Amino acid sequence: MTKAFTTGRTAAMAPAVEELADRHLDALEASGPGTDLIEALVAPLPLAVLCSLLGVPPEDATRFRDWVEVLFDISASTPQEKARRRLELIDYMADLIDRKRRRPQDDLLTSMIAAHEQGDLSMGELLTMGLTLLMAGYETVVGQLGLSVHALLHDPAAYGEVCGQPDRLAPTVEELLRLTPSTPISFPRVAVEPVPLGSVTVQAGEGVIVSLLHGNRDGRTFPEPGLLDPQGHDAAHLTFGHGVHRCLGAPLARLQLQIVLGRLTRRFPTLRTAAGPDAVVWKDGLGTRGLARLRVEW
């Protein structure tokens, strides 16, 4: 899996991501001086990138988005509806794997099928990994893009710096990842033996959840931890995890953030959040943070 998300392989995807971003921004500009940025750009672009990487046919993208958004939204559907959508998604992935086994292509899912046939992945692992990449790789990046634009629009000085000094883009992206992560907490983990942690000992059998949101604002590590520093920090944030649990898709997420924010600020230097209480609507998400609506004007 790590071979698919190396910095080099991810960088090779940059032209395709740039083309997608330009296409969506062209349509956004043509539609008029105001739009819902989530619907026009933030949601469709990561979906197209992920589908291209994995090998999901473009005509299936809309169905997949509907499935994932129902599964991650804790208020939009009943438990029965979630269960039905989950089964539909599993059936879809199993069918897609079968199709690619018969007609291999140059994509990540085909590579995973080859690993399964060599005995490196069981069928259950293949199915689970495919679903995990599709769901987590889409929902988290959509959330991060929306939150990043939202944060920049609420900090006009930072937005202006990125517009006027493109070299500030990369450190600004890292600051946005640090300050407003779409994944605010880690997966729960359970200690198998007593673990001293600061002034506390986590006993065997006790669960631990790490607040990435708070760790990223640790005043002992980051001076003025609540402020966006366009020059960035030397210390690493925890948004993508750490060590062997580090997010595989981190390079691809960074690439999309840098391309979208770079092009958005260059083409729309006067972008601002629209007036009115309904301009910004937050998702009732499960495990991830994000926006359901971000109406903007320029």
Results as ranks from 00 to 15, higher is better:
83 A>V: 09
92 Y>L: 11
7 T>A: 15
114 A>Q: 13
238 L>R: 02
207 G>V: 09
93 M>C: 14
79 P>H: 00
236 A>K: 14
139 E>V: 09
292 A>W: 00
262 G>L: 03
34 G>D: 09
179 L>H: 04
89 L>Q: 13
134 L>T: 14
154 H>G: 14
187 F>D: 15
10 T>Q: 01
275 A>C: 04
287 G>W: 02
203 Q>S: 14
148 S>L: 01
180 T>L: 04
148 S>W: 01
18 E>Q: 14
145 L>W: 01
197 L>S: 04
121 L>I: 07
46 P>L: 03
129 M>A: 14
273 T>N: 07
94 A>M: 13
249 G>F: 00
133 L>Y: 03
278 D>M: 01
11 A>H: 10
81 E>A: 12
296 V>C: 07
130 G>N: 00
119 G>Y: 05
16 A>V: 11
194 P>Y: 01
216 N>L: 06
223 P>M: 01
107 D>C: 02
123 M>C: 12
70 V>K: 03
242 H>R: 12
113 I>T: 07
60 D>V: 05
21 A>N: 05
206 E>T: 08
292 A>N: 07
74 I>V: 15
59 E>H: 13
224 E>Y: 05
6 T>M: 00
43 A>W: 03
83 A>C: 10
178 R>S: 06
256 Q>P: 10
271 L>G: 12
99 R>V: 11
291 L>E: 02
134 L>A: 08
161 E>A: 14
19 E>N: 13
100 K>E: 05
274 A>K: 08
178 R>M: 02
102 R>Q: 14
204 A>D: 05
119 G>N: 07
249 G>V: 03
55 G>R: 03
265 T>N: 05
298 W>I: 10
55 G>L: 02
30 A>G: 15
85 R>C: 13
171 P>N: 04
240 F>I: 11
282 W>R: 15
137 G>V: 04
158 A>R: 00
84 R>G: 11
69 E>T: 12
258 Q>M: 07
142 V>T: 12
46 P>Y: 00
196 P>A: 06
242 H>T: 11
221 T>G: 07
219 G>V: 10
35 T>L: 09
298 W>N: 06
34 G>S: 11
55 G>W: 01
110 T>G: 04
259 I>V: 15
99 R>G: 11
19 E>P: 10
48 A>N: 09
180 T>D: 10
153 L>K: 03
49 V>R: 00
255 L>F: 01
293 R>C: 10
34 G>T: 08
193 E>D: 10
24 H>W: 04
140 T>Y: 02
8 G>Y: 03
14 A>L: 09
280 V>R: 02
177 L>G: 06
220 R>K: 11
84 R>K: 12
246 R>D: 06
148 S>I: 03
250 A>M: 05
232 G>C: 04
227 L>Q: 14
69 E>F: 02
148 S>N: 05
29 E>N: 06
60 D>C: 00
58 P>Y: 05
121 L>T: 08
244 V>N: 09
166 P>C: 04
51 C>Q: 02
236 A>G: 13
155 D>N: 13
245 H>Y: 06
90 I>K: 12
187 F>T: 15
212 L>N: 14
98 D>A: 15
128 T>Q: 12
202 V>D: 10
